[in-house]
């Protein structure tokens, strides 16, 4: 019944009106009993966060289901209503996919988390001893030979993320005149496998990494400090130290971490949507969630319950 009503309303009023109506409704307007579908991806903090939010929704009386999806393709699924929301929209990694989906319509911005994200060149702690002067990029460039591998010859190797993450590492190497070659790993797992092997051998390594991320808890390290980020550095050659090149400065150190939702969610599950808008995790909270799984060996569902039990004051406020 309710579902039918919702559909007719949407049809009659159109998406935009429905949205305002949805958020204006009182909180306890009955949510649909259809399950809210939460996508999960292949990194643990996101899985735990999804379970945390799912259990919050269940606490509110909603039905929740999880579905695993590709983290890029998920925006198309949100637009179509195949999944209801997305809890981790990283500015650097998924900003483009999210914006493309926004342009096509069907998806709404459900606000930012408190947490900020950073994605850049990174090294594990022990490398600092091998190459004094880190985290400065000039110091790194000075030790370039130390990072050389058979396939890069005399230049140092920077292990980048998969090419489809669209990082402009090679451009930066060229712009800053660094003696490095970019080798792209094929997956995040490949990055971590290389990192673990290098650490075991005590070999120097510099690779792509981001925060918040579980790897910080397992292998402490630090980001390389590139010339300070300036908005537009990727388009205007004048910005940054090299007047003739773009991409000659660091990635934004404070990227957003957003939530997104299907534009029908406000209509169908008004209470859940209102809560979603309030939900905001901090960097330490996300790190904590990841740690529960990656270090303490909890299952994501258990980790979520664990976290909810320990942080009641945080999330109770969101469902008021």
């Amino acid at each position: 019944m309710l579902r039918k009503q919702a559909v007719t309303t949407t049809k009659m009023l159109g998406a935009a009106v429905a949205l305002t109506l949805g958020s204006a409704l009182p909180l306890h307007a009955a949510d649909s009993s259809d399950p809210i579908i939460i996508p999960i991806h292949n990194w643990n903090s996101q899985i735990v966060m999804s379970n945390v939010v799912g259990q919050i929704f269940e606490e509110m009386g909603a039905n929740v289901e999880y579905v695993s999806t590709d983290s890029q393709a998920v925006y198309e699924a949100v637009r179509n209503g195949d999944v209801t929301l997305e809890l981790e929209v990283w500015e650097g990694a998924f900003g483009a996919a999210f914006n493309a989906a926004m342009e096509k319509g069907g998806i709404v911005d459900a606000g930012d988390h408190n947490a900020v994200t950073r994605e850049d060149w990174w090294y594990p702690d022990y490398v600092a001893e091998l190459c004094p002067g880190l985290p400065s990029w000039e110091a790194l460039n000075g030790c370039a030979a130390m990072f050389a591998t058979p396939e890069t010859g005399d230049s140092g190797r920077f292990l980048g993320g998969p090419v489809d993450w669209l990082k402009h590492d090679q451009e930066r190497v060229d712009a800053l005149g660094m003696n490095f070659k970019v080798v792209n790993a094929g997956s995040a797992s490949a990055l971590w496998a290389e990192l673990a092997a290098a650490k075991k051998r005590g070999e120097p390594i510099v690779l792509f990494n981001w925060t918040p991320n579980f790897i910080e808890a397992v292998h402490p390290g630090a980001f390389i400090e590139f010339p300070e980020h300036q908005p537009g550095c990727d388009k205007d050659p004048a910005l940054g130290p090299n007047p003739n090149a773009t991409y000659d400065c660091a990635n934004p150190p404070n990227g957003y971490l957003k939530k997104a939702a299907w534009d029908g969610m406000a209509e169908k599950w008004p209470a859940a949507f209102a809560t979603l808008q309030k939900i905001s995790f901090t960097n330490p909270q996300i790190a904590e969630m990841a740690k529960l799984v990656d270090v303490d060996e909890f299952e994501p569902e258990e980790a979520a319950s664990e976290w909810l039990a320990a942080n009641e004051d945080v999330w109770k406020a969101w469902i008021q």
């Binding site: 591998t149 058979p150 396939e151 292990l159 080798v183 792209n184 790993a185 094929g186 797992s189 490949a190 496998a193 290389e194 673990a196 092997a197 075991k200």
Partner: peptide, 11 residues
């Protein structure tokens, strides 16, 4: 894939 990367690196 994982042990192979650990042995040979990303190449």
């Amino acid at each position: 894939l994982i042990p192979v990367i650990m042995l040979f690196g990303v190449n």
